[in-house]
Design a protein around this nucleic acid. Sequence first.
DNA 1: ACTTGCTCCTCTAGCGACTAGAGGATGCAA
DNA 2: TTGCATCCTCTAGTCGCTAGAGGAGCAAGT
Lengths: 140, 140
Amino acid sequence: MTDMPIGEISRRSQVKVPTIRYYEQIGLLPAPPRSEGNRRLYGARDLKRLSFIRHARDLGFEIDAIRTLLTLQDNPAMPCAEADGIARDKLAEVNDRIESLMALKEELEAMVGGCGHNCVGDCRVIEVLANHHKCLHTEH
Amino acid sequence: MTDMPIGEISRRSQVKVPTIRYYEQIGLLPAPPRSEGNRRLYGARDLKRLSFIRHARDLGFEIDAIRTLLTLQDNPAMPCAEADGIARDKLAEVNDRIESLMALKEELEAMVGGCGHNCVGDCRVIEVLANHHKCLHTEH
DNA sequence: ACTTGCTCCTCTAGCGACTAGAGGATGCAA
DNA sequence: TTGCATCCTCTAGTCGCTAGAGGAGCAAGT
């Protein structure tokens, strides 16, 4: 459990070795003690922190947001409005992204469906891209 | 219509001035002729091309894909299977992204909804991030 | 003891698609 | 002529890694 080398914590946390070193470099993960031979030795706390980071990254949180989240986690007596705010902002962003991807999906489906695989001259894909007014959604 | 300076083509195409110069630099947009005073002078063709690029970028196509699409557009006699393929790939990608964003949305909603705005110690947001097994979706 | 092969170290540079800023030239109207 | 907007080139920065060079450490097998 304790004194893992970087390869092991990488396997356990599912975070790649260079990424772990990068997180140390930018101060997201504290620099661990080293072995006699100058190798990083990680403990259970580091694994927890790294898993937290990875999970947050998977959810699309940016490094800066994670930094805030980690500070909050380290100080459990603080009011949690800030953490809640970060999650709320992210949720709004995700909703926006879903919406525009749905519009895009429709547009792509129209392109792909309409193409009879002849030559480029008649291609719906190129045509839609070239003549914007033929789009389903004109706001972009 | 013809001999627009960069600012005007920027306004018309909705592509920012430095981005236009960047596109020229990477060979996506041909280098236009210059005025006596060394200023770029664009014509209607350039505006079309830039609008095409912008539209494709909005739709999430990468620069490399756009490069291919532009080559196809320049050669209307070629078979359009390639353009169709690019659009199909993009559609699959968009569907994937929508799916994972929907999962993410659920997870964020659970975080935000469950939090009673007390102190960090009881915060759902932090807790979910720290304890992965409490997620709605465990595959990530 | 020696070799093999893996993991680890630091360091620098690169990715995509821009964006920002310095420092200067040009164009046009009042 | 003065002032201001627009334009020019060039370099460096953004984000979140990723790749590669060149070398050192470590554990197991012969």
